[in-house]
Design a protein around this nucleic acid. Structure first.
Length: 367
DNA sequence: GACACGTGGTT
DNA sequence: TAACCAAGTGT
């Protein structure tokens, strides 16, 4: 049987699971009342009582995946200004979208965002579906985002269980099961406490609660609308939740990046493969990045030249490894053809090119 | 189910 | 400062 997230519609058809926990004591109306007084004002949110634009919800939710509100704000504004509707985004080229996304990270999101816009345009006439199941079929939309769009944009009963929800639920019910194993349990608990109305407000209310009250450290329990039913607060064990499995260590990889300059300021660049790390993004040529580092970097140089080995190094931390890049620089004559698979990026075009943050650090050493 | 996948801010 | 953290998804 295909693996499928638990949907709100499932819960309505099943007997309440229940074990040692009693979700009936958690009052959703208390959360809604708190939300009415403390809701955060965010650019992608509708005014109280109004409904949010599904495209705005979609765009913000994709950007907010594993990304802070502060980091998203300028990108959201820039995307919306440049591509005001999902049809506009669908009409854009992937290269434009990747370049506009540069710096935000998790670049597969940009690729999927673009593919999703095209799918919505072609398969749904430019209108986002309101059903979770249909949303789930779209590229880049998983259980969380499907539930977020369904609830926030269409006010459907759905549980967009993100890190905030997990933290809130883990404390509310003192969940001992560690993440990520506890995911299905959190989903079930979330569905159990859904209100009968205002589903979008409830979804965002729990997120706001997690972001401002039920914080990772030193939660402000005295201000919490759910302080009375909260198992962790009663026991004084808030800091123990959510339980998390030990994470793998982060190794360091090393490589050499080649800064090939022309006197006019152009720099030699190439595009990364479409899949994998920094997929489809622009980079300065380099050796492969390995734990031991390159043995003979000159063999991987894009061309033969007199290299200056810079003293500076570029350090960068990715999600699953740290990178330390040595820098080799050279200047070649104007008119030097770009080697196969490479291209020249003029000085004035660097800003608009899809260089990820790590490459912008490298490029600071151009001179 | 475990791992790949970015970045910048906070503690 | 090293570790942790942020509105997850795809494979």
């Amino acid at each position: 049987m295909a693996r499928r997230p638990i949907l709100a519609t499932d819960a309505l058809q099943e007997n309440p699971p229940q074990a040692a926990i009693s979700p009936e004591r958690v009052d959703p109306e208390a959360l809604l009342a708190w939300y009415d007084r403390h809701r955060r004002r965010l650019p992608w949110r509708a005014l109280p009582g109004e409904s949010a634009d599904p495209y705005h919800v979609f765009l913000s939710e994709i950007m907010l995946q594993q990304t802070t509100v502060a980091a998203v704000q300028p990108y959201f504004a820039a995307f919306l200004a440049r591509w005001p509707t999902v049809e506009d985004l669908a009409a854009a080229s992937l290269e434009e979208v990747l370049a506009a996304w540069a710096g935000l990270g998790y670049y597969a999101r940009a690729r999927n965002l673009h593919a999703c816009a095209r799918a919505v345009s072609e398969r749904h006439g430019g209108r986002f579906p309101s059903e979770e199941a249909a949303l789930l079929e779209l590229p880049g939309i998983g259980p969380y985002t499907a539930a977020a769009i369904a609830s926030i944009a269409y006010d459907r009963p759905a549980a967009p269980v993100d890190g905030n929800w997990e933290r809130v639920l883990s404390r509310l019910f003192a969940v001992e099961e560690p993440l990520p194993k506890a995911r299905p349990l959190f989903r079930r608990l979330a569905l159990d406490i859904l209100p009968a109305r205002r589903h979008g407000d409830f979804a965002q209310g729990v997120m706001d609660l997690g972001a401002t009250i039920c914080t990772p450290r030193r939660p402000a329990c005295t201000l919490c609308p759910w302080q009375r039913p909260c198992r962790a607060r009663i026991a004084g064990t808030q800091d123990l939740y959510p339980r998390k499995a030990a994470k793998a260590e982060r190794p360091t990889r090393r490589g050499v990046a080649f800064l090939v300059m022309r006197p006019d300021g152009a720099v030699l660049a190439r595009s990364r493969p479409e899949k994998g790390l920094l997929g489809g993004m622009t980079e300065v040529p380099s050796t492969s990045w390995t734990t031991d580092g390159p043995v003979a970097p000159e063999r991987d140089a894009p061309l033969d030249a007199q290299w200056t080995v810079l003293n500076a190094r570029v350090g960068h931390v990715f999600s699953h490894f740290a990178l330390e890049l040595a820098l080799w620089r050279t200047t070649v004559p104007d008119g030097t053809p770009a080697p196969p698979g490479h291209r020249w990026v003029r000085s004035g075009d660097v800003a608009g090119e899809a260089f990820p943050s790590v490459m912008r650090k490298v490029l600071e050493h151009r001179q």
